[in-house]
Amino acid sequence: MIRIAIANQKGGVGKTTTAINLATALAATGWRVLLVDFDPQGNASTGLGVGQAARGRSSYELLRHDCTVEEAVIATQVPRLDLIPATQDLTGAEIELIDVEKRTHRLHHALEQQEDRWDVCLIDCPPSLGLLTVNALVAANMLLVPLQCEFFALEGLTQLLQTIERVRARFNPQLAILGVALTMYDRRNRLSEQVAADVRDVLGDVVFETVIPRNVRLSEAPSHGVPALIYDHRCPGSEAYIGLARECIARLTRKAQAA
């Protein structure tokens, strides 16, 4: 099972929107997809129509090893897309696990028991570089970074890349960067164009060709409890995530062939 952490310590860059819609697009192509909501806000769960009452077991219990993946997983309304929901209990996990041995590997050990059921696992990380995000980076084979097209984007990316190098050195030398996805791109704003150009100059081919635009339908979809690809599959945001999914599949295929 390929495991992809979707991470950026900055909030409001489109991590959860990317997680939901990329998972939906991959499922639509026939992949069996598991989405792990690892953010205490639980927005990925809400965005897939899973309310608080339906979150019996969650990523919190999974992290504590109080349940298995099988016991926590919920089938969503999207065919071939399953979810491990999140609750606010995750907020206290960092303190509760502070004295636990190998606390950085808790998610990895939980997920490795389910290697065959799904083709790919996406992990929606919280907007921080704490224990939850480190757990996701240790558990993942790949990292996808949503990067908002705004002035401070590269500054935040530098901090994230430094954390990735520390995780590689200490815990997970196999962690590779799948790509950087430019999000919230506004074609009417010259700043978006300049930031996108600067990011491509610095990172080159690591940056996906597909750019996710600012799109009202992407913002509306979570309030209806469905991914944008179901809410309005013809809107520019949905079409962009379909393009991003194609690029992800192509990159994963190339990496598999090269291995």
Rank of each mutant, 00 (worst) to 15 (best):
A169R: 15
R170M: 05
R170Q: 14
F171L: 08
N172I: 09
N172D: 08
Q174Y: 03
Q174D: 13
L175G: 08
L175H: 07
L175T: 08
L175K: 08
A176H: 14
A176R: 15
L178N: 00
V180C: 09
V180S: 04
V180A: 12
V180L: 10
A181I: 11
L182T: 00
T183C: 10
M184V: 07
M184L: 13
Y185E: 02
Y185F: 15
D186F: 04
D186V: 07
D186S: 04
R187G: 13
R187C: 03
R187S: 14
R188Q: 11
N189Y: 07
N189T: 06
N189V: 11
N189K: 09
R190M: 10
S192C: 13
S192D: 05
E193A: 12
E193H: 14
E193P: 00
E193Y: 04
Q194T: 14
Q194R: 15
Q194H: 13
Q194E: 15
V195G: 08
A196Q: 09
V199Y: 07
D201T: 13
V202I: 13
V202P: 00
G204A: 06
G204R: 11
G204Y: 12
V206G: 04
V207K: 11
V207C: 12
E209G: 07
V211A: 01
I212G: 01
I212R: 04
P213G: 05
R214Q: 15
N215E: 02
V216F: 02
V216R: 12
V216D: 02
R217Y: 05
R217V: 05
R217W: 05
L218Q: 03
L218W: 07
A221L: 03
A221Q: 03
A221H: 00
A221T: 01
P222M: 04
P222V: 01
S223D: 09
S223F: 10
H224K: 13
H224D: 06
H224V: 06
G225V: 05
A228R: 02
L229S: 10
L229P: 03
I230T: 15
I230D: 12
Y231K: 08
Y231V: 02
Y231I: 04
Y231Q: 02
D232G: 10
R234F: 11
C235L: 00
C235D: 01
C235W: 05
C235I: 06
G237C: 01
S238P: 00
S238Y: 02
S238I: 03
E239M: 14
A240D: 04
A240R: 03
Y241K: 12
G243R: 14
G243P: 07
L244E: 10
L244S: 08
A245V: 08
A245Y: 05
A245N: 06
E247F: 11
E247R: 08
E247T: 10
E247A: 11
C248P: 00
C248A: 15
I249E: 09
I249M: 15
A250Y: 05
A250M: 07
R251W: 08
L252V: 05
T253G: 10
K255C: 02
